[in-house]
Structures are given as C-alpha cells and as structure tokens.
C-alpha cells in the first residue's frame, strides 16, 4: 500500500458514483446543475466529461418531476442516482420519494423493485434559514421500506454510497454541505460498507455516546474534553439509521450503564427518540440513568449565526448531557 491518501468528502462521493458507473452501465446521475455546472457543490465535477450527457443529466428545477422520473427508471431496471441540491427541497417531491419509492416492491407484489439513490445536503448549512435547513431524517426515517445512510466522513461516505448504488432498495443518502470539504483517509483499493454496521470510534467505560452524520465530530470533541476530566466516553457512529445497528449500542451500554444519543433532527419522533427507546428496552436493567438526548432545539432553524450555533447539537451541549447522564454535574 502507498502512503495514506486523504481526499475530500465530495471527492469520495464522486469516486463512489464514478466507479459504480464504470462498473454498471445502468447507473446514471440526474439533478439540478449536476452536469454542465459540475454540481452546485462540485460533487460531480468532471463526470459529464467522462460519462456524457446521456448519463449525467441536468434537470429543471422540478424535484417532483425528476424524482418521479428516476423512480420510473428504477422500476424499469435502471439504477438512477438523484442529487437533491438540498434535502430541504425534497419536500416538494414527498409523494414520489415517500409514497412511491419505498412502497413499490410491496404494492407491486414483488414485481417492481425501486433501486434508486437520492442524495444531497441535509441539515443546517449555515445561515440558510428555517426552510432550507431541514434534517429530513426526522420525518423520513418514519417510513418503512427506505434505507437511510448518514455518513460522517469521506471513508464511510464512499463505501456506503457504493453499496447504496449496488443495492436493490431505495436509499436516502444524507450528506452535509458543512462536511463536503472535510478530508479523510480513503484508500485507492475498492471497498464497500454494508448498511446496519455501526463503528466504534472511541472506546470508553463511563458513557456510550451514539450519533451519526455531522454531530459525530462534536461528540468526539466532547469526549476529548471530558477525558481530561476523567470521564471516559465510548463514541459510536451509527452510519445508517435504517437499518439501525442497535446491537453495537446495546453491547456498549451494557458496559457503560449510561447513554447519550446525539441527533441533529428535532427531538419529537426522531431517529434519536427511536434509538433511546430501543436502548431503554434492551438495556433496562443495565441503565444507571435514563438515556439522555441532544437534539436541535424544538424550534424552526434560526437565521442568526449565534442562535443557529446554539440551536444545533454542539460539543458544549453534548458534554453537558454526558455529565448529567453520568452524574457528574
């Protein structure tokens, strides 16, 4: 092996798509600005040159239209990758992506699968205001029939996107524009990461901290800070919330007896509340405190930068929750 190769999150996404397109002629990419503009966030840079306009397709500003088109193509045997400039905009495509894609296999009695990947930026991008800062996993994880990946780093992003494209089911792939420039190790060699496999990022004995996506980094910051105060955190990156690798979390909580769930969606009826509920069920006799949860505040996303900072899960709030959960207030 050569020296450690570090690439940006966006490059990891592009490598995943390009490799899968080379591998499988049925795979194609469509979305706003993905072709001639090289992607609104430059994720698809150079892909038009390599694969041509039949496979890298610029769409009109019509999420409902191109999402529906992709679903039809998937039903007929192609493997579309749909880029939403922001998952906030997927709300106008709610009927195709929530009402058609996840139910197609079921409603057609197994005749039509729907192997489509929807991907794009999720969560607060930074002063984008209430309507453009959605964490759609809060809503969408409620729907049976979809898979949802929320990677936190380039390595996981590439491996999970490749297995998303290869799979037979609809996948919601949630990225963050705040992480697209993050660099991380991604090997030259090919690899895929299966869904439903959490990763223990940091081992510890006092508190299990479970998260996914961007807040994982804040969890690591909080764990680092608390280690100086003698509180040992075990940080788990779930990587996918559907399916949810509850086993890894349970094994950890049985060791630590306390758990903090960090989820950047709203708290009411969220992946975080689901995870907490499952931990309470499976670890009832192991818990020393109720499962603490850190979410975005239960308000629409504020625009002002200081308020937005406080609104999101951040290292300070996570550390506070861990101290409370471990009775170290």
């Amino acid at each position: 092996m050569t020296a450690v190769r570090e690439i940006e999150f966006r490059d990891a996404l592009r490598e995943a798509m390009s490799e899968e397109m080379r591998r499988d002629k049925r795979v194609f990419l469509l979305g706003e600005e993905v072709a001639q503009y090289n992607g609104a966030y430059k994720v698809s840079r150079g892909m038009l040159d390599e694969f041509g306009p039949r496979r890298i397709i610029d769409t009109p500003i019509s999420e409902s239209g191109f999402a529906g088109l992709a679903i039809g193509a998937a039903m007929m045997g192609l493997k579309p990758v749909v880029e939403f400039m922001s998952w906030s905009f997927s709300l106008v495509a709610a009927d195709p992506i929530l009402n058609n894609a996840p139910k197609m296999l079921y409603m057609s009695g197994g005749q039509f699968g729907c192997p489509v990947v929807f991907r794009g930026n999720d969560g607060a991008g930074g002063q984008l205001g209430s309507t453009h800062s959605w964490c759609v996993e809060g809503l969408y994880s409620n729907v049976p029939g979809v898979k949802i990946a929320i990677p936190s780093n380039p390595y996981d992003a590439k491996g999970l996107l490749k297995s998303s494209i290869r799979g037979d089911d609809p996948v919601f792939f949630l990225e963050s524009e705040r992480m697209l420039g993050n660099k991380g190790h991604v090997p030259e060699e090919e690899y895929v990461i299966p869904f439903g496999q959490a990763k223990v990022l940091r081992e510890g004995t006092d508190c299990t901290v479970a998260s996914w996506g961007r807040p994982v980094h804040f969890c690591m910051d909080a764990a680092e800070e608390l280690a100086k105060q003698g509180i040992s955190c075990e940080v788990i990156d779930l990587r996918t919330v559907r399916p949810l690798d509850i086993g890894t979390v349970v094994r950890s909580v049985r060791k630590t007896s306390t758990c903090v769930v960090v989820d950047q969606s709203w708290s009411f009826g969220s992946p975080g509340s689901e995870l907490a509920s499952q931990v309470h069920r499976h670890c009832f006799d192991d818990l020393d405190n109720y499962v603490h949860r850190v979410h975005t505040a239960d308000v629409p996303t504020p625009y002002a930068t200081n308020l937005e900072q406080d609104y999101l899960p951040n290292a300070r709030r996570i550390a506070e929750a861990i101290r409370s959960a471990t009775y170290n207030l």
């Binding site: 109720y290 505040a297 308000v299 504020p302 937005e308 406080d310």
Partner: peptide, 20 residues
Amino acid sequence: PPAARPAAQPAASAGSPAPA
C-alpha cells in the same frame, strides 16, 4: 432534574412553544 432543564431556546422570539 436535568431532563426538566429547557434546552437552549435561541428563537424564543419565534414564539415556539415547548409544552412537552
């Protein structure tokens, strides 16, 4: 108890209720 402590409420002016 810690649970009862309201989380940061940055957008208080937005009139967002937190009855729960």
